[in-house]
């Protein structure tokens, strides 16, 4: 059985240690790592008053010293600290011969301390901050990499979990039935492809889209924008919350509640899916529902969809229910 602790192997020099050089740029992991120093600002070092012992100097005495002081109080014969031996300094002080034959280490403090000679290396460390920033970026940028390094900071979609546009991700999840995400993704891709290939929509001026939207002819080449524009244009700003019993006589009071962006989009998508599922299917096969959803999105941009009326109804109700906002909740 080999020995558990292999001392020889443990002492093996590590050749592949990463060094931070002064000239080159530090490695990517160092640049990306959070740079923090805890002791500097957040937790200042403890200080001592002038003349008083420092924070680490007031420690418990040695066991034998403590026992001696205890016995001094109680009168017992404790350990004799004084009689344990003669300090070396005393011996050296009184004996000339031993002072000459003393080891070199003990002789040194007796001489005045003055550094002699120079070291070939530095014993002071550079602050880490310094090592991380003090270099030019051009030197080692591309050497050793097969492809160019990504531009920093990384774009939002470079994260694995956020690689799709937020609207696309939300709609995909709302399309999903029975937890079948890949089916929903295929449907989503079909919807976007349908938007790509359909003829450019003719926008109805009575149903204005979001202000600042691009011209309709630009939409098919950017289907994600097309989808986002349709959803955001019909998304309601508010919802109506029925406050139970607030109107008196057990009647619920209608209260308008503002919605956040994601909530607004969710409501719009639910309306779209609702009205798409009520359409009669024309073809057969698996692309049917995606086609209906895509046609509904085009209908929204063209102002033909019934979703606009649902949004208008909610807004109308919310305006009339504005007066109820003064009622205090009990």
């Amino acid at each position: 059985m080999p020995p558990r602790l292999n001392l020889l192997r443990a002492r093996r020099p590590t050749m592949s240690r990463v060094r931070i050089s002064h000239q080159g740029q530090p490695s990517l992991c160092l640049r990306l790592a959070p740079q923090r120093s805890i002791t500097a600002d957040e937790k200042p070092l403890p200080t001592a008053d002038e003349g008083a012992p420092g924070p680490n100097q007031e420690q418990l005495p040695h066991v034998s010293e403590e026992a001696a002081s205890t016995s001094n109080i109680t009168g017992d014969g404790g350990p004799e600290i004084e009689e344990q031996g003669t300090p070396v300094d005393e011996v050296l002080g009184r004996d000339q011969a031993s002072r000459e034959k003393a080891p070199k280490v003990m002789k040194e403090p007796m001489q005045p301390a003055s550094p002699t000679g120079t070291r070939s290396f530095s014993t002071s460390t550079r602050p880490r901050q310094d090592a991380l920033t003090s270099s030019d970026d051009s030197g080692l940028q591309t050497t050793g990499h097969k492809f160019e390094l990504p531009a920093l900071p990384l774009a939002a979609h470079m994260h694995l979990k956020y690689r799709y546009a937020p609207v696309v991700k939300q709609v995909t999840n709302l399309l999903m039935r029975d937890g079948k995400l890949s089916v929903a993704q295929r449907n989503m891709a079909m919807i976007l492809n349908h938007l790509r290939t359909a003829s450019p929509p003719s926008v109805n001026p009575d149903r204005p889209l979001l202000p600042g939207s691009p011209p309709a002819s630009h939409l098919p080449l950017n289907p994600i924008l097309y989808l986002t524009l349709a959803i955001d244009s019909v998304a309601p700003l508010l919802r109506i919350r029925a406050q139970k019993g607030m109107a008196g006589g057990g009647v619920a009071l209608q209260m308008p509640v503002p919605l956040a962006l994601r909530q607004r989009r969710r409501q719009a998508v639910m309306w779209i899916l609702d009205s798409a599922s009520k359409k009669p299917s024309r073809g057969s096969g698996r692309g049917g529902f995606a086609q209906k959803v895509a046609e509904e999105i085009i209908a929204i941009v063209e102002g033909r969809s019934g979703v606009w009326d649902r949004r208008g109804g909610i807004h109308k109700l919310a305006v009339s229910a504005r007066a109820n906002l003064n009622v205090r909740r009990r």
Binding site: R196, T197, A198, S199, P200, P220, L221, P280, R282, G283, S284, G285, G287
Partner: peptide, 25 residues
């Protein structure tokens, strides 16, 4: 009461071959 698809109509839609997209550059 809505018009029922004619025989083969739904399949023809499924098997339709489109060779051009006017929106593409």
């Amino acid at each position: 009461r809505a018009r029922r698809p004619a025989p083969g109509e739904r399949k023809a839609l499924r098997k339709r071959i489109v060779l051009s997209n006017v929106n593409a550059l």
